[in-house]
Amino acid sequence: MTTGLKSTAFEGNSFVYIRHLDDGEIRSLLPPDALDDVSDPEDLFVVASADGQRLAIVEGREAAFAAALANDLNPLSVH
C-alpha cells in the first residue's frame, strides 16, 4: 500500500543543535585572547549543524537559541 506522503517530518526544516562547551573544549577551539571580552567563559554554547559543523559559539543558552531562531533555524538542545 502506498500513500501520498513524500516527505518526513524533518524534511525542509533546518535543525541546529545547542550544546554547552566545557572549559577544555573551549581552550582547544579558540585562540587564547578570544575569551578576553567574554564575561563568563563557563557559559559558552555551540550552535552546530546536523552534521556537526560549528556555526557559532555564543555566550548563554538563551542567546544561542535566540541566534538560531533569528536565522530561521530550529534549535534542539543536546546534553
Rank of each mutant, 00 (worst) to 15 (best):
L29T: 07
S7H: 13
Y17C: 04
L29E: 09
A9K: 12
R27K: 15
R61H: 13
L30T: 05
L35R: 02
L35C: 06
P75C: 12
L29W: 13
A56W: 11
H79P: 10
H79E: 13
N71W: 09
A64N: 05
D33C: 03
N13Q: 09
V38T: 10
G4Q: 12
A9H: 07
G60H: 11
P32T: 00
L73C: 06
E42C: 04
L44T: 00
A67N: 09
R61W: 11
L73F: 14
P31V: 02
L73Y: 14
R27P: 00
Y17H: 10
P31E: 07
V78G: 03
A66N: 08
P31K: 08
P75N: 09
D72Q: 14
A66W: 05
L35W: 04
P32S: 05
V46I: 04
V16C: 07
D43F: 02
G12N: 10
L76D: 05
D22H: 15
E42L: 06
L35F: 06
E25G: 05
Q53A: 13
Q53H: 12
M1V: 10
V38K: 02
D40G: 01
I26W: 04
G12A: 09
D22Y: 13
H20I: 00
A50F: 13
L30F: 11
I57H: 03
N13R: 14
D40M: 05
M1G: 14
A68F: 09
A64T: 04
E25A: 08
T8M: 08
G24N: 14
N71E: 13
F65A: 04
E42S: 15
L76V: 09
R19A: 12
A48D: 06
N71D: 14
E11R: 09
V58T: 10
D40C: 03
P41C: 04
I57A: 00
T3S: 15
D40T: 02
A66I: 01
L76G: 07
L76W: 08
G12C: 06
D72I: 01
S49Y: 10
I18P: 03
Y17N: 08
P41Y: 02
D23I: 06
H20L: 10
M1K: 11
L35K: 00
E59G: 09
H20G: 00
Q53E: 15
E42A: 13
A34N: 04
L5M: 11
P32Q: 07
I18G: 01
L55V: 07
I26G: 01
S49M: 05
E25M: 12
S39E: 13
A56H: 14
A63G: 02
H20T: 02
T3L: 09
A63N: 15
